[in-house]
């Protein structure tokens, strides 16, 4: 399973490295979203700093939808999905591989957006480990749910519109917990406030990763 995970993740990341869609479209989209949020909030820096955690996660969530769409789209042409099913790869490995590739792209995006909120919104981070932990756990949750719903919506003609409708509510706990952890890790917050939300993220990740490992095979058959 782990070998298959590496193979699939390597394949998806190689496609991204060559096509540069994530780098040239998804990351800039995230930055544009940050700038637009700033326009919507006005020039008041204290308000921007207060809103930074939520806006950061909102931008990540929107970009995650794009990353998942992209991850599904690369399999939708030239019978690639059937090819993958025929390849004999372990479905669990396939799920973990695709989720890892999405997670890797989101981590890069989060670094860029993290620098963005510090520079643009004047957010002051006081407990960096809390921020890093929330990003890692949140990304894992987004990647797991995204891969599952991506597979469910694959092959549907209305994939582009249905996926955000299905994915955004299910990923809402990540937005909620991620925002609270960031608030705890920034100036004015206390690290203790973030720990219970970290626990929620751990449970969320564990549930959806386990579900994905178990049901990804049958989902592929239904698509």
């Amino acid at each position: 399973m782990w070998r298959d995970t590496l193979l699939v993740a390597g394949k998806d990341l190689r496609i991204e490295a060559r096509s540069r869609v994530a780098l040239s479209q998804v990351v800039p989209f995230g930055v544009v979203a940050l700038v637009l949020f700033a326009f919507a909030l006005g020039p008041d820096r204290t308000r921007m700093a207060a809103g930074a955690p939520g806006l950061f996660w909102l931008a990540v969530l929107f970009c995650a939808v794009l990353a998942v769409q992209r991850s599904v789209a690369v399999e939708s042409v030239d019978g690639a999905r059937d090819g993958l099913r025929l390849s004999g790869l372990d479905p669990a490995g396939l799920f973990l591989g695709k989720a890892s590739a999405i997670a890797a792209q989101l981590i890069v995006l989060e670094v860029v957006l993290g620098v963005g909120v510090v520079l643009l919104y004047g957010a002051r981070i006081t407990t960096p480990w809390l921020i890093v932990a929330s990003c890692l756990l949140g990304t894992l949750g987004l990647a797991a749910t995204g891969t599952l719903y991506g597979a469910l919506s694959a092959g549907l003609r209305v994939r582009e519109t249905l996926l955000p409708f299905l994915l955004l509510p299910i990923a809402a706990p990540v937005l909620l917990a991620g925002t609270r952890i960031w608030q705890a890790g920034m100036a004015g917050g206390t690290a203790a406030d973030g720990s219970q939300w970290l626990r929620l993220l751990v449970v969320f990740d564990a549930v959806y990763l386990a579900l994905g490992v178990v049901v990804y095979g049958p989902i592929q058959e239904s698509a």
């Binding site: 599952l148 469910l152 579900l211 049901v215 049958p218 989902i219 239904s222 698509a223």
Partner: peptide, 8 residues
Amino acid sequence: RSAFVCLF
């Protein structure tokens, strides 16, 4: 497909 979405 619906059954999976319901479970999630």
